[in-house]
Amino acid sequence: MKFPPFEFHRPGDLPEAVDLLLSYDGEALPLAGGQSLLPMMAFRLVAPKALIDLSAIPGLDGIELNGDSLRLGALVRWCDVLCSPVIANAHPLLVEAVRHVAHYQVRNRGTLGGSLAHADAAAEFPAICLVSDAMIDVVGRDGKRCIAARDFLLGAMETDLREGELVAAVRFPIWPAGRLWHFREFARRSGDFALAGVAMYCDPDRQAGVCRNWHIACFGLGEVAQRVDAVEAFLEAKPADTAHIREAVLIAQRHLVADGDIHAPAGYRKALATELLGRGLNEVFKAVAGGDG
């Protein structure tokens, strides 16, 4: 359980980090919080020739609320998210999701950029990016580019990042007042990878007793977090009642893709995801009716 040999660099800015990554011809890996990478190295599942430690690069840990977005630097840690009054208002769904990330030791070091680049199927943060239509700012050889979360997350531990590219920041659209949201996941023990989870939000029209602009993502059940567009479309402006929840769950069952592993078969994961979806919708609909969103 000891690391294989590797070289170590701690660049002072992003261009230098990119150059270092490129100089290893794909055999170097960036190090952010190290909460996934370092255990994988200890297990010798990965053996990079070099680690490019990003911790000395200034400006990557910013939490900024601009006119139209919440911008989070790639080195923002989970614990930063949890204690940020800005994020508490600007993205309460994100805060709730981060509460479910691993254990507090991991939350003290793990970064959201690292989580996104690692792209574990059961990770909360990629699902929040996906459900929120977040934009990922990446930096590489040819400068910056912005990638929509939907295009960034390609599969299990697979992203659109090209060789030498680094996640620099994630931008979330502004969160309007009154938005209803829900997050829940189910793991065997507190802190474990979720067997399935669901994140959702919508904007209520209280006078009409309906919600619009549904955003729903399920994660942990397949290779990558999944938006359930069909359910979103179905629920648009539908009255908040149990019949519509049942119908939404049935639609989700038809659209979600699940995989099995040693912890749970695909059938269970799908059933779990739809169960959680139903429970989440129930909570959101209660909030619409109760007006306490």
Binding site: F43, R188, R189, S190, G191, D192, F193, I262, H263
Partner: peptide
């Protein structure tokens, strides 16, 4: 053997 770490082999923890 498919369970070769404490992430895959689930021991009771203090919270359980």
């Amino acid at each position: 053997l498919r369970t070769a770490s404490l992430a895959d082999y689930m021991l009771p923890t203090a919270a359980d």
